[in-house]
Computed example of a mutant assay.
Amino acid sequence: MSKRVLILGGRGRVGSHVAADLAAHTDAEITITGRSHQHSKQIPDLGSHVQFIELNLEDRDKLTAVIRGLQTDSSDSNRNVVIHCAGPFHYRDGRVLETCINEGVNYVDVSDHPSFTRKAIAYREAAEAAGVTAIVNTGIFPGISNSMVRQSIEQLDTADTVHLSYVVAGSGGAGVTVMRTTFLGLQRPFQAWLNGQWQAVKPYSDREVVEFPAPYGRLGVYWFDVPEAFTIPSAFPVKTVITKFGTVPDFYNFLTWSVARWWHPRLLQTRAVIEFLSHVSHFMTDVTDRFSGIGVAIRVEVSGQKDGNPAKSHATLVHENTAIAAGAGTGSVTQMLLSGKLDKPGVWAIEEALPTALFTQAMHSRSVEIKQSLQMTA
């Protein structure tokens, strides 16, 4: 029997691209879930091995039954996988991961909010005891970006500073959930690892102009609260981790900066306000996407030493569709779990679990080009 994959939230923009990636690169039986059958016909035709079922994550009994059902009539049940794509993850608890651990099913997610990542990592010992491999933050950023950091660190003998910069054009091809994530990230100052200690940083502050590859060029980026801000210093002995984000067109940066700077924090902690901002922003990007595109660019710079001399390792990525790139990140990790190439019981951020050799092979197979260089700075 075929291996099985359950994609929670698989009808969304990112979830549907994860499904498409798996349909193209594996022979797994794929089940996509959503809250209603009403819109199931909107799912692209990915073949007879992809089906849709209705599932609300608040229905714990049905969630358990569906995950338990993955193990039925499966010849390789220990390699079946649940993929959690049902964000925004700021509002999610650990029930999906906990159920996977209880049922002995491997787990992957596209989580992008630090609060959820912390909740997930708290299950590490339980997952290890159950022999379940759970990989969090596997999309594009966090996700591919984290593996680019690991790749760059491994180019050096020692690493001191990691500077991660991201830019997304318009909506990035994603849905309103991504807009929610952006505004949820403005709610309060977050802790950044700077000079070997945790320091409070205001989101969307300290604009910095960074040189991205064509067609983006020099663009402004701002401090942003992402899981990488704490998972990277946990995984690697570095002194500083900088995480900055920006958008194209640039006037979106000004609007987001204005909200972060001038709006009262209590407003940004109100769900109705987040929904208003998210839907207005999504409406605006529907207009500007036709001019800006929906791509993504990532720039990684790691400073340290090589052969006893100061050096910098750089990695860059450009993709024309942010959601497709996220699908490639999550799809490739899931493919490795299905094949048994990746087996690391416990709960791990992607940079802790995925060896660089497997990462580069997966990106090459999906035509995701990552350019890397090493510069001696002495």
Rank of each mutant, 00 (worst) to 15 (best):
R4I: 02
L6I: 12
I7Q: 06
G9C: 06
G12E: 05
S16Y: 08
T26K: 04
I32H: 05
T33G: 08
S36Y: 11
P44H: 11
D45T: 04
G47N: 07
G47H: 05
S48M: 02
S48R: 04
S48H: 12
H49N: 14
H49S: 13
I53V: 15
K62V: 11
G69D: 09
N78V: 08
N80H: 04
Y91Q: 12
R92D: 08
L97P: 12
E103W: 07
Y107W: 02
V110P: 00
T117G: 14
N137Q: 13
T138N: 09
N146Q: 11
S147F: 01
Q155T: 10
V162M: 10
H163M: 09
A174C: 04
V176L: 00
V178A: 10
M179S: 13
T181V: 15
L194H: 10
G196W: 05
S205W: 03
D206H: 06
R207T: 10
Y216T: 04
V221H: 06
Y222M: 10
F224A: 10
A229E: 05
I232K: 01
S234V: 07
F236K: 07
P237L: 08
T243L: 02
W263K: 08
P265S: 11
R266Y: 11
L268T: 08
L268S: 04
V273A: 12
S281E: 02
H282C: 04
M284W: 10
S292M: 05
G293N: 05
I294F: 01
K306V: 07
N309C: 11
L317E: 08
I324V: 15
A326I: 05
T330M: 04
T330K: 03
S339Q: 12
L342Y: 07
P345L: 03
V347F: 06
W348G: 03
A353E: 01
A353F: 03
M363L: 14
M363S: 03
